[in-house]
Amino acid sequence: MVNIYTLKDVSKHNTKEDMWVVLHNKVYNVTAFVPAHPGSEDILITRAAGKDATEAFEDINHSELARETLEQFMIGQLHEDDCVARKVFESVYERKIEEDKPKRSLATVLIPTFAAIILIYKYVLHPRISVS
């Protein structure tokens, strides 16, 4: 059975000697990892301890190794009543990622296409014949 915690439960664990964080609706006891965190203890304490740190975690673009390492510290799930705010954030975050993707305009497609047609026409279909 999975343990269920509220944000209020998590907020009580906000020191380097007893630190829980919420990431993507999962609750982690990262106390043992605090001294090894490459970003320093201070960052964990100020930005993550006893909080939902999903946004801060994603802003850093943590590696896959960091995400895999994190799994060993999972102790439960966030209560569904506290997940509502997370769902709103995640949809906004996903929309931002979609908006940040480069957009293909007509010019970015047509210019290289026309250049390729001209080169093919000039050098393949009608090459210059040099007479020596």
Score class of each variant (00 low, 15 high):
Arg86Lys: 08
Asp82Met: 03
Ala56Gly: 11
Arg86Leu: 10
Ala66Pro: 00
Leu78Trp: 00
Gln77Arg: 12
Arg47Val: 06
Ala85Asp: 07
Thr54Cys: 01
Asp52Ile: 02
Asp81Val: 08
Ser63Phe: 04
Lys87Glu: 10
Leu70Glu: 03
Thr54Trp: 00
Asp42Phe: 08
Arg47Ile: 07
Gln72Phe: 08
Asp42Cys: 07
Gly50Phe: 01
Gly50Thr: 05
Glu58Asp: 13
Glu80Cys: 05
Ser63Glu: 05
Ala56Leu: 15
Ala49Lys: 04
Glu64Gly: 09
Gln77Val: 12
Ala85Val: 09
Met74Ala: 10
Ala49Pro: 05
Ser40Cys: 10
Leu65Gln: 15
His79Phe: 06
Gln72Arg: 13
Leu65Lys: 13
Ala48Asn: 05
Leu65Met: 14
Arg86Val: 14
Ile45Thr: 09
Thr54Val: 03
Leu44Gly: 02
Asp59Gln: 12
Leu70Ala: 02
Leu70Gly: 02
His79Gly: 04
Thr69Glu: 10
Glu55Pro: 06
Asp42Glu: 08
Leu78Cys: 00
Glu55Val: 13
Ile45Pro: 03
Gln72Trp: 05
Val84Asp: 06
Asn61Phe: 10
Asp52Trp: 03
Arg47Gln: 14
Phe73Cys: 05
Cys83Tyr: 05
Leu65Ser: 13
Glu58Trp: 08
Ile43Thr: 11
Phe73Thr: 01
Glu80Ser: 11
Ser63His: 06
Ile43Ser: 11
Thr69His: 10
Gly76Trp: 00
Thr69Lys: 14
Gln72Ser: 09
Glu55Asp: 11
Asp81Asn: 08
Ser40Asp: 12
Asp82Thr: 03
Thr46Glu: 09
Thr46Cys: 10
Glu80Thr: 08
Ile60Tyr: 13
Ala53Pro: 03
Asp52His: 02
His62Trp: 04
Ala66Phe: 02
Asn61Arg: 13
Ala85Trp: 10
Phe73Ile: 01
Met74Cys: 08
Met74His: 09
Arg86Asp: 15
Gly76Val: 01
Thr46Pro: 12
Glu80Pro: 06
Ser40His: 07
Asp42Val: 08
Ile43Gly: 10
Asn61Val: 11
Arg86Gln: 13
Lys87Thr: 10
His62Pro: 01
Leu70Val: 03
Glu80His: 13
Ala56His: 12
Ile45Asp: 06
Met74Glu: 12
Ser40Val: 07
Leu44Glu: 04
Glu68Trp: 11
Phe73Leu: 01
Ile60Val: 15
Leu78His: 00
Ala53Val: 03
Asn61Thr: 09
Ile45Leu: 14
Val84Ala: 13
Glu55Tyr: 06
Val84Ile: 15
Val84Asn: 08
Phe57Gln: 06
Ile43Glu: 13
Ser40Pro: 06
Met74Tyr: 07
Ile43Arg: 08
Glu71Asp: 12
Val84Tyr: 07
Gln72Lys: 15
Gln77Met: 15
Ile45Gly: 05
Glu64Leu: 14
Ala53Thr: 02
Glu55Ile: 08
